[in-house]
């Protein structure tokens, strides 16, 4: 029994971090954006564009950390387009988000053509398990260097939103634009800045994909992970720390299929491969109710009004 349970457990735990890190960054970025009262479906496009930018930056400069910077910049710029355009009158942020998603993926495919073949320097893992004799443990504990950064951002975001004047402004703009205006705040400016900051954070998720795991650029790299991460924010009830646990849960679910097949449990691998998507559906079904607004949801979100 131990031959099966332990390896699967280690693979799922390791996979939770390996596969879950992009989810973490995108959901944190979306969490910040939505706290300011706006939805950015364009983060899927941000994820694809920033992973291309990260790879390109690392390839051209020779340094993966310059790639990480490029990813944040690309993410902030694309999210900025969304932020500015949604500030115009009668622009629907859902429709705009879909347009931004297409713009981001299209740009990434176009600019990323010459980047499919080359190899770029990737981020070196943090080897937590180097003292362990088990190869499985070593593999599970060679941590993506961006993951601790993600945990820090989650903690910082939670603290900032709850305890600082800055966090209060973002939440007020998200909960009641009228109250914010009465305070003399520019709702549009706050939302645009929050959207851009969210884009920069989501850009780190792109860098994690192309510079660490799997560590190369191609056009199907994201395959919808950005959209799953956006759904995660609802599951996490707009709380940054809950985004962390939710991302790990989804990462682990993604690792379950291959892990079970590798130990010879291969009955229903289509089912196991579908676990992340089934989980998303389940969350959305459980989360939606026609009778009241979702607990924790910023009331300015266009889906709430």
């Amino acid at each position: 029994m131990n031959d099966i349970v332990l390896p699967v457990l280690w693979a799922v735990l390791g996979g939770a971090i390996r596969v879950g890190t992009p989810f973490l960054f995108v959901s944190l970025g979306e969490c910040l954006t939505e706290q300011s009262g706006r939805i950015n479906l364009g983060l899927e496009g941000v994820l694809v564009l920033s992973s291309m930018a990260a790879f390109g930056g690392a390839y051209l400069s020779g340094s993966p950390w310059i790639g990480v910077m490029a990813a944040m910049l690309a993410g902030a710029l694309l999210a900025g387009v969304h932020g500015v355009l949604c500030g115009l009158r009668r622009v629907n942020d859902i429709a705009m988000g879909i347009a931004v998603m297409m713009l981001g993926t299209g740009l990434a495919f176009y600019l990323g053509k010459p980047l499919i073949q080359p190899q770029a320097p990737t981020l070196a893992p943090i080897m937590l398990g180097s003292t362990s004799s088990s190869a499985q443990l070593q593999a599970a504990l060679s941590i993506n260097p961006l993951f601790p950064l993600g945990v820090l951002i989650a903690l910082a975001l939670a603290w900032l939103l709850a305890n600082t004047r800055w966090g209060l402004i973002v939440r007020m703009v998200g909960d009641s634009a009228d109250a914010a205006r009465a305070q003399g705040l520019s709702v549009n400016r706050v939302r645009t800045l929050a959207t851009m900051a969210g884009g920069a954070i989501a850009g780190l998720g792109g860098a994690s994909l192309s510079l660490f795991y799997p560590g190369s650029w191609n056009e199907l790299l994201s395959s919808g992970q950005g959209l799953i991460a956006i759904a995660l924010v609802i599951f996490a009830r707009w709380r940054p720390l809950a985004c962390l646990w939710a991302s790990l849960l989804f990462g682990g679910a993604g690792a379950l299929g291959p892990a079970l097949q590798s130990v010879g449990i291969n009955g229903a691998y289509y089912l196991f491969n579908a676990v992340p998507y089934a989980l998303t559906l389940l969350i959305l079904v459980l989360a939606c109710t026609p009778y009241r607004r979702l607990q924790g949801a910023p009331s300015e979100l266009s889906v709430q009004r």
Binding site: P7, Y213, S223, G254, P258
Partner: peptide, 18 residues
């Protein structure tokens, strides 16, 4: 073409001693 899943599959098999 499923880059993340392919990497995950390779890792799980490597864990199993492949």
């Amino acid at each position: 073409s499923m880059p993340v899943k392919e990497a995950e599959a390779t890792n799980s098999l490597a864990d199993q001693g492949v």
